[in-house]
């Protein structure tokens, strides 16, 4: 991703954040904790670079065309029959939506 693209996606997320007041409620320290969770704990199965492992890749390309609501629900409720667990004990709905935006915009730290 070039700097221009990155800036553009950051701007896109920023404007989306303006729309969703709920996301704006996620304080900076909590975002840092969520980012750590995404890279380190999701990364255990999906790869630190989100290119996949036991679980599928979660790169913007891999997620293209998948509805964000469905992705959010997979995060919150897991996928029965697979090792994907429900993360709902650790995340609010808004936090799961924020993680989906981070993933589909390729902003994984």
């Amino acid at each position: 991703m070039t700097h221009v693209q990155r800036a553009a996606t950051l701007a896109a997320v920023a404007s989306a954040l303006v729309v969703s007041l709920a996301w704006a409620d996620i304080a900076a320290p909590r975002r840092a904790a969520l980012s750590n969770l995404l890279v380190q704990d999701c990364g255990s199965c999906h790869g630190l670079t989100m290119r996949g492992g036991l679980g599928p890749a979660l790169t913007p390309e891999a997620l293209a065309g998948k509805p964000p609501v469905m992705l959010r629900d997979v995060i919150l409720h897991g996928r029965p029959g697979t090792p994907m667990p429900p993360w709902q004990p650790f995340l609010t709905v808004e936090e799961a939506e924020w993680l989906v935006q981070v993933l589909i915009n390729g902003l994984v730290p």
Binding site: D41, S44, C45, L54, G78, P83, P85, P86
Partner: peptide, 8 residues
């Protein structure tokens, strides 16, 4: 019922 597995 097994618990959700957060790490293999």
């Amino acid at each position: 019922q097994a618990l959700p597995v957060y790490k293999m």
